[in-house]
Design a binder for these strands. Structure first.
Lengths: 206, 206
DNA sequence: TCTGTCTTTCTGGCCAGCCAGCCAGTAATC
DNA sequence: GATTACTGGCTGGCTGGCCAGAAAGACAGA
């Protein structure tokens, strides 16, 4: 995307730093308060701009949420790439996965909460649905590409196609994270171990 | 707290058939319109009662939603028991799982949509959070008990504790269902096969 | 450098619509 | 006649979107 090169009348791609602040404020607000609770009033205050500016940039709440989805995708790619870079065998790969999940849960479960918020909204809004679909597709493709690369390096030996592995991996990740968030006092160690044990069957035929 | 519990000291549980209709109407409405879109006006009309009756029985929207969660749990138990009853070995068990998931997706993905709706609401309402926690716990326990029974019958040979198996199984189920709903045109056959293949590692050490 | 004009960015008051909850009152039941 | 079951009009509060206009730049000419 082009930065704030010029103010284009038709499509205001990225008006600049204030738009960024708004999107990020909305993202955090949705994770904390939900879509319904994220009023323009709240978000504007947290972004340090006026309410009107949200309409000036994005028009409607839905379009702002689509931008939130887009940003979310970018953030996930960064996180994914950072995590997978250093794996040198299937065990290391799965260990990295586990620690990154642990860390995510301890520090900021925004991702998963936001995923579910956006999914529920997507059921009722085609614009958001399209964005969400794109988020799922791109995330899957991204991980699948990484898996393919790891396979060529000899780190992994996939027993099924990489896209399917990505689907299963993200699915069990989302589902478990939801459960951990729902029952924070329960020890999910055994469940996470079981998940990893079952995933190994897809990553390594050794 | 006990505003509407006057009529029957022994049990405020079931005011009757109208309350049932309200709960079921709310359940379906939440799955279709989301929590925010499920106004008392809509739900009352669909249940064939007046708006005021919803307040008369449940007081607040949250308390009505807690009843929805409770009902959801009951429905799930029925479905689970029906599905697992006839499995005679691990393969049959997993095949049953696959067909029941397929059928659920084709006919009525209410379950999963509702799960996510309630989860997002639970983030903001302690009453609902408690109900949701209970839903997760009871569902897990229920499947774990079935798994234990199947193990004693010699149908399955679990490689980890049944509760963890249940967690992983439901997690991957929820996550995949969400993805299927988000991308209805994509063929998830390979992904579902991959999921089942990975789950086999937990169900059968043969 | 100053000044005036035009454009873009940004503000916040306003409004119409919606909703949960309240409550006064009516119907049903005993 | 009294208690319980039920109704629906009302309201206060909130929200997204609109818009008139204020600030902030941009630019030209003197």
């Amino acid at each position: 995307m082009e930065a704030q090169s010029k103010p284009s009348p038709p499509a205001k791609d990225l008006p600049g730093e204030k738009a960024e602040r708004i999107i990020e404020a909305m993202r955090q607000s949705v994770a904390r308060r939900g879509v319904a609770g994220s009023t323009f009033d709240h978000v504007a205050r947290e972004a340090g701009v006026s309410r009107g500016l949200l309409h000036y940039y994005f028009g409607t709440k839905e379009r702002l949420l689509v931008e939130v989805v887009r940003r979310e995708a970018d953030l996930r790619f960064d996180a994914l790439d950072r995590q997978l870079a250093e794996a040198t065998d299937a065990d290391a790969f799965l260990r990295l996965l586990q620690t990154s999940v642990d860390e995510m849960l301890r520090t900021d479960p925004t991702y998963v909460t936001l995923t579910f918020e956006l999914f529920t909204l997507a059921n009722r809004n085609e614009e958001v649905a399209e964005g969400f679909r794109d988020l799922m597709q791109r995330t899957r493709k991204h991980l699948a590409d990484s898996l393919r690369a790891k396979e060529q390096e000899g780190v992994l030996h996939l027993t099924v196609d990489p896209e399917s592995v990505a689907d299963v991996l993200f699915s069990v990740g989302d589902g478990l994270t939801m459960r951990v968030l729902a029952e924070p006092d329960r020890d999910f160690g055994p469940a996470i171990s079981a998940a990893i044990r079952s995933l190994r069957g897809l990553l390594d035929d050794a």
